[in-house]
Design a binder for these strands. Structure first.
Lengths: 204, 204
DNA sequence: GTGCGCTTGTGAAACGAATCACGATGCCCA
DNA sequence: TGGGCATCGTGATTCGTTTCACAAGCGCAC
C-alpha cells in the first residue's frame, strides 16, 4: 500500500466517525469533499482495502470504518507507554482519544525521581527501571516520547533495547535509530516554520 | 519552491543549529546523513535559496542558517496566539522553543470564565473578547488552536474573521476554512494510527 | 422488465519529486 | 603555479502519486 495512501486512511476514518449515524452510506465524492481530497483518489485509496463499494450507491459507512480499522491494524488495542511527564506528557496522558482510536496507555514514566508516584489521569508516574520491565512484560511495541530534547536519544536507545518498534517523538531532536524501528516526528517549531514560509511568501 | 522542499527546510535548520559551533562548514553529504535524506536532494533544496555553496568545500554553516531563516520568513518574530488553555495549550505555552524558532506568544485565551486571569508561563489567560482585539491590535496572523474538538470550528471561524491567516490546529477536528487561510493539522491519533499500520504489516 | 441515472473501479495520462550521474569549479598543497 | 581532490549545481532519468476519463454495474422508477 502506498505511503501516501496509508497516511490518508486515518483521515477517512476520522471523517466517517464524525459524520454521525445519520448517513448509512457514503459516496467517494462526499467523503472526498469532507476530507479535502480528490474523489478518484479516495476511490483508489479505498480499493487497496479490497473494499467493495456498491456502484450507484457508495460505501457502507460502518463497514468501511471496520475495514479501515482492520487495514490500520486497529482491531486490537495497542499498549503504549509515554516517557517524559512534563507539560506535554501530561497533556497526552489526559488525552481522551486514545481508547477510541485503538490505543491503551499502560504507563507513564519519568527520569525525575521527585515525580515518581505522582498521579496523572489515573496513572502513577513510574521510574525508568519499571519502564523496561513493563515493556517486556506487556510486550509493548509503541512508545510516545515527550522528554526534553537532550534526553531523547538516550531514552530512545533504551526503548529500542527493550524491544520498542515504533516511536512517536515529540522531542525536538532527531533520533538515530536502527531501521527496524519506525519513528514519526512531531515538531511544533517545524510546523510553525512551514506556516511562516507560506505566510511570508503570501505578502511577497 | 516545491512543497516538499519547504517542508524540509526547517529540518535542515534544526540540524545545522544542533551541530554546534565546532563545524564552520558543512557539505551536502554530511547534512544529508544527519537529516536522513539524499545528498543530491539537499543540494537541490538548497539551490532554491539562491545559496551558493563552495565547490570542494561545502556550505558555510552560519550563512546557510541565515539563508534558511530568511527563506522561511523568520527574519522577524511572528506574533502568535494560543487558544484553548487545557493541558495541551499549557504545554505549548511553556514550550521554550518559540523564541529561538522565530515566534512570540503574545497571549493565551480560553472560553472558560473560571480560567481567565490564571497565570501560565508569565502570561495571564485572557477572554475570547480580548483575543479578537489583540489580533487586530498586534496584527497577528498566526494562531495555535488547542481547544476541544467540539469548539474548534467555531473558534476557527472567529479567528478567520479577526484576520488570522495561518492556523496550527491540534484539535482533532477538520476545519472548514476559506482557502485564503493556511492550516496545518497535528493529530496524535492519526500519527499513532499510521504507526499502527506499519507495526501491523510488519508482523503480517 | 427495461431504461436511466448515479457511482464505482481502474487503465492511461499528467504531474511532481527523488535520485542518478557527471561536468564545472574552487581550494589546498607540493 | 599547477595538479588532484572534494564538492557543488543541475540536466536527465526514474519513481511514486494524483488526476482524468470512461466502461461496467447496480438500483430504482415507471
Amino acid at each position: 500500500m502506498p505511503k501516501a495512501t496509508v497516511e490518508r486512511l486515518p483521515l477517512y476514518l476520522q471523517c466517517l466517525q464524525a459524520m454521525g449515524d445519520s448517513e448509512t452510506t457514503v459516496s467517494s465524492d462526499v467523503l472526498a469533499n469532507i476530507a479535502g481530497v480528490n474523489s478518484a483518489n479516495v476511490r483508489k485509496d479505498l480499493s487497496y482495502l479490497g473494499s467493495h463499494g456498491v456502484r450507484g450507491v457508495g460505501y457502507d459507512r460502518l463497514e468501511l470504518c471496520v475495514q479501515l480499522r482492520r487495514a490500520l491494524g486497529l482491531t486490537d488495542k495497542w499498549p503504549v507507554v509515554i516517557i517524559g511527564v512534563g507539560n506535554l506528557g501530561s497533556a497526552l496522558a489526559n488525552y481522551q482519544g486514545f481508547d477510541p482510536s485503538g490505543f491503551n496507555v499502560i504507563g507513564l514514566y519519568d527520569a525525575d525521581p521527585s515525580k515518581i508516584g505522582d498521579p496523572v489521569d489515573g496513572h502513577r508516574i513510574k521510574s525508568m527501571e519499571e519502564l523496561e520491565l513493563d515493556i517486556k512484560e506487556h510486550d509493548v511495541q509503541m512508545a510516545i516520547l515527550t522528554t526534553p530534547a537532550g534526553a531523547a536519544q538516550e531514552v530512545a536507545d533504551m526503548l529500542v533495547g527493550a524491544g520498542i518498534l515504533s516511536i512517536l517523538n515529540f522531542a525536538p531532536a532527531l533520533l538515530k535509530l536502527p531501521d527496524t524501528v519506525k519513528c514519526r516526528q512531531v515538531d511544533l517549531a517545524t510546523e510553525l516554520q512551514i506556516l511562516s514560509y507560506y505566510q511570508a511568501t503570501r505578502t511577497a
